[in-house]
Design a protein around this nucleic acid. Sequence first.
RNA 1: GCCGACCUAGCUCAGCCGGUAGAGCAGCUGUUUCGUAAACAGCAGGUCGCGGGUUCGAGUCCCGCGGUCGGCUCCA
Length: 635
Amino acid sequence: MEPRRSGVPLTGRTGIFLSRERRWVMAAEPIDEEIAGMDIAVEAVDAHAYELARMRHSCAHLMAEAVQEVFPDARFGIGPAIEHGFYYDFDLPRPLTPDDLVAIEDRMRANRAKAEPFVREVVSRDEALAIFGDNPYKVELIEGLPDDDIITTYKQGSFLDLCRGPHVPSTAEIGPFKLLSVAGAYWRGDEKRAMLQRIYGTAWPTQAELEGHLLRLEEAQKRDHRRLGRELDLFSVSEEIGPGLILWHPKGGIVRYLVEQFEQQEQLARGYDLVYTPHIASEKIYKISGHLENYRENMYAPMSIEEVDYYLKPMNCPGHIMIYKSRVHSYRDLPIRFAELGTVYRYERSGTLHGMLRVRGFTQDDSHIFCTPEQVVDEARGVIDLAVHMAGVFGYDFQAYLATRPAKSVGSDEVWERATTDLRRAMEERGLPYKLDQGGGAFYGPKIDIKWVDALGREWTGPTIQADFNLPERFDVTYVAEDGERHRVAMIHRTLLGSMERFVGGLVEHYAGAFPAWLAPVQVAVVPITNDQVDFARDVERRLTEVGIRVEVDDSRDRMQAKIRNAQLQKIPYMFVIGKREVEAGAVAVRLRNGRDLGAMPTSDAVDLVADRVASRSLFLDGEEETVAAALRAS
RNA sequence: GCCGACCUAGCUCAGCCGGUAGAGCAGCUGUUUCGUAAACAGCAGGUCGCGGGUUCGAGUCCCGCGGUCGGCUCCA
């Protein structure tokens, strides 16, 4: 049988699969055909993951049973296992309250204790329709099943559900769980359809694992860039300025500046040219580019300037193309790499805004590479090199994806084939392992997506390298080849960090606000113990400032303990404590923000230590940290 | 945009069944000058998100709007 949309033949295999939506998809045991309508990107047929997902899915049923007890009129949607737990969607007579969750959880525990068996039964289509006839959601699911599909139900206790399974033998085998939140969710993810109430929960084999997971959630909360952004005075959002528009405070500004400087230097060293393009542009350009046709819902209303409509730019590509087209280019000029920290404005629906991570105005580290078709592989490889380098500097792991042709797209099959092969080759030649993101490409071309994997194992938008067949056509972008004829140029869009907003927001969470020395807004806090040491502290400040180190002297009337605590809370990497002894010895006592006390050392040594760590963009504050980290990696 | 929750001092949060706003931290002033995560005291600070309604009386109840949060959808 031909898999419909999956691209991964599953027939005859047993197991579970992690779909592109990061939802665990369970197959019957054994699979007698492919999973209907599922867009499978990643397969994970390992026994442990299988059992975990099975247990979580059973927990979803346990929850549904409890909901049915509390709300006899409830109609049930779907209840799959997901990455760390499960959810179930319900159509209920009234909104759920936090108290409901507690009640449902209590019933779940009681029902689990009954050790009810999960009973599988094969039913005919007509039987299924009869059983679930009063539930339009289940009816729709049944009607969507292929004609020859085997339809099964599972029952535990009083709860009967249309379900492909599999399940654990009895509710007693469901591990420790906790219900986490209620949220609205469209039926079948379609915003034109009914909104159901979704309860999210998490479940684990052991209590320790459950607690571990809850602890990780807490840790993620502590790292929330919105909270740290306020505590560390990095940025804010003002209702008066407007939602989704970021105000960068001085301390956030310096971090952004340093990241930008670093990236610009790297680009200049790799043959990029820096360009600048305006924030608004005439409608003429967006008619040619197709943005008014295809992207209008993300663009802000135009302003009229002497009878012509002008738009805030949602992308930088048109500007870069116009720079390219300002003269005729020989094949000898290519590749040409235009880079710009381009600020763009896009309309985002209010409900999607999220701190610095999802905003309405942002600055992309954008670049467009114009080259010959033959140069695409080399150029893509060059970008990958740079991307891998950046990941290393910021201390991210990464995972690459090759996103292929989506259903709605432009261009011929052979052009797609060629570009996809080029991107694939670039990764393979570079030895970069990647996963397939079937149908995840842009409408105008395939792309490589590299996701940063942060300190908590979460994936973030990272570098993306996209081939574009659309714009070179629309703008008729050409070069003159050796044969003296004009040929169509190949164009690559690429961004490394994505946007400064999202990247710096992500960095805050990755580092939990404790930036490495080179990025720390304040690198050294000088702490005189009493007023008698302030003059010496000023001296130390001067010496640090002279070598470009950002320093603050805490000459407040606080006690030393309070000064240290404040520096600590600001996550300042180095504290130079100065008492009577240090002044006499011309020394400073160095304390790291991790609590380690390096003791007194000559001021010049301390300055050198910091300067060295800054210059090398080290992720570690001193040699010992490095050693410990290396040992952890090795183990 | 949709579903739900929330919005009280710069921050974190109290505020009962409607009776006229409170704490800690931060800030300011004073005293203290002290060896590795919070000295002590005083002062000041709020159209309780905004607008309307119910009521003798609204931070508390109702409606509308805005914003935030958790999701859905979408995405750099």
